[in-house]
Structure formats: C-alpha cells, structure tokens
Design a protein around this nucleic acid. Structure first.
Lengths: 182, 182
DNA sequence: ACCTGAACACCGTTCAAGT
DNA sequence: ACCTGAACACCGTTCAAGT
C-alpha cells in the first residue's frame, strides 16, 4: 500500500469528473471521454477502476449509506408511511444518474459485483421497514425485500423514460391501481 | 414503387434474422451482425431500414395489433379484471425482446418515431379499458393511459432485470403494496 | 433500382514501454 | 509504483462504385 501523491490525485480527479459525466449523460458515458476530461491516460483510469462498475461504486457507496441511515431514522414513524417514504427516497435517488436502477438490480444479483455489498446493506435496511409493516398486517406476508426493491427500481426507470414523476407512479403502486375492497 | 424480387427477398431475410437476433440478444444487437447473419451487405440493411427503430417496428407492428385486438376481446369482462389481464399481456409481451419496454415508452413520446403510430393505437385500446374501469369507480379518476402503460413497462423492465416474474410485480401494483382501507 | 464494402469516427480493453 | 498511448477488435453510419 503505497499511496503515492500523484496516484491519489488522479483517483480523486477521475471520481469527480465521472460524477459530472454520469449526471450529464448517464452511467453509460464513454470511459475514454472521462479519462480525456480528467486529463489522464485511458490506462490510468483502468488502473484505478478496472471495471465501469468499480467507478460507479465509488460514487454510490455514500449514497447507499445515506439510504440505510434514512431507513433507521424512519423507524419511529408508522410502519406503512415509513416504508412508503423510504421507497420514495430509493426511487427518486435512483433517478439522479440515468441507468442507475439497472446498476442496483444487477449488483443485487451478482455477488462478484463491486456494488454488491452496498446494495445488500441497503436492502437489509429496507427489509426491516418491510417486516415491521408486515407484522402489523399492513403489507401482505409473502412480499419480499427483493420484490419491493425491484418495484421501486422499475418505477424509477419508468419515470425517467416516460416523463411521469416517479412519486406518482410509486403512489399508484402503493395504493393499488385496481385494489380489491377489504 | 418497383418491388424487385431480390429486394423483397432481402427485406424478408433481414426481418427474420432480426427476429432471432433480437430474441437472443435483445433489441440492441449489432446491426452489422444481423447483416452478416442474413448474408447481406451492411448498406443493404440500411437501405431497407434506415434506423434501428424501423427494424424494430417491422417486428412489432403485428404484436401491437394483437394487443389492440386483445383489448377488444376483453371488453365483455368485468372492467377491473379486463384491465388487469390486458396489462399483464402488455407487460409479458414486452418481455419477449430485452429492451422492448424502453422502445415502447420512447416511441410513445417521440412523434417522429416509426413506432409511434402502433404505440398510440395500442394505448388507445388500453385507454378504453381504463375508462370503463374508472366509470365504475374501480380505478381512481385521475389515472391516465400514459401512467398505466408506464407502470406496465417499468414492471416488465424490472421483472427482466430482477428475475422476479412480471406477473408478480404487476399483481403487487394492482392490489397495492400498502393499500389504505376504504 | 438495388447491392456492396471500404471509409470514417467512434468505442472498450489490454499491454509494452516509459518515468 | 504508477502513467501513457498505441494496438486490437469491435461498433454505427455514410457513400462512391458497381450490376
């Protein structure tokens, strides 16, 4: 573990340029372009981040940590509202980078992904809120944390693509489009 | 309008190869590869289908027509069930080619798209079912056909990405994840 | 009227050569 | 220990040259 000063500088430079580029053009922006904008050789980018996912991960770890913390903050609110609010945060947060919902779902399934750990931690935090809501009979017993996250990710994706507010689509799914009276 | 025999043959060849290729690798398969597998110059592919969307459209028009017909068949069933079944058909149909939900939402917004016409027609058919359900108070009044399609497309997308059955995600959204008692 | 493939401007990724 | 950029194998798209 050497920590040479120029290496550290390049690392941080790449991350901050990538943050801009992803926000502008989505998570599939050209890596070559990021290297160019950072004034760094393409090989240097690959040395610091061997895969695109590694770069995404560097930008997302703190975001996921915040969502985990958010779940804990919501723990003292009524279970159904807490779950609804948290899912809204997840979905709207997924909309910051175009292509992000896809990264989340992919990382959740792929144990070798650099994002896997952060995603699993986030899911665990959400699972707590889900379990509480289920204990009180507010959400059907069979629903899994995976299903809930897939729902939020799918609606984040659809919101981005359709121009309809993510919050609106999520509200429809939470209330039910054609709910049976009970 | 000439209709030379070789041109017609090439057209059909490209379409049938594209159907296979899209089913295998999704809607973003290399066009070059399709031309290669069809034994045709890349220029010939571009001559027949000036954009990738034009090629997708050739494959999707009949599918959309079938979905429109399906909506009419369902018209004699109870409104809520009819809508639910139709949305399931839309969502599962969107799963045949990876990347298709994206094409549908894009084409719906882009009036210059070759797919626009077929998408609008399909939406209109769905809008009828939606309106009937709303007249009977089974679906909230403010819900639009666009929102309903975005929901179905988003869950088709999420099902593909998460490995969770589309039908399951859609059922959750139709019943409501955290429905208020009414 | 239609077909062909070279040509151009881009990618992602690797790796020998440099400091 | 790290950086660099040429090199390779691919794209999408256009267009002059052929039949």
């Amino acid at each position: 573990m050497a920590e040479r000063a120029d290496a550290r500088r390049n690392h941080d430079l790449i991350v901050s340029v990538a943050a801009e580029a992803f926000a502008e053009h989505g998570v599939d922006t050209s890596l070559r372009d990021i290297a160019r904008r950072a004034g760094v050789g393409i090989g240097t980018l690959y040395r610091h981040f061997p895969t695109r996912e590694a770069l995404v991960e560097a930008l997302l770890r703190q975001r996921f940590d915040r969502l985990r913390a958010r779940a804990e903050e919501l723990a003292d609110q009524p279970p159904a509202e807490a779950l609804a609010r948290w899912l809204t945060d997840v979905a709207t947060g997924s909309a910051t980078y175009r292509g992000l919902p896809e990264s989340v779902l992919a990382a959740l399934r792929d144990e070798t992904s650099e994002l896997h750990g952060s995603c699993v931690a986030m899911r665990a935090a959400g699972a707590e809120l889900l379990a509480r809501a289920q204990e009180e009979g507010l959400v059907a017993a069979g629903v899994t944390p995976e299903e809930v996250l897939a729902l939020a990710a799918g609606l984040a994706w659809a919101g981005d693509r359709s121009g309809i507010a993510v919050e609106r689509l999520l509200a429809l799914a939470l209330d039910g489009l054609t709910p049976r009276r009970r």
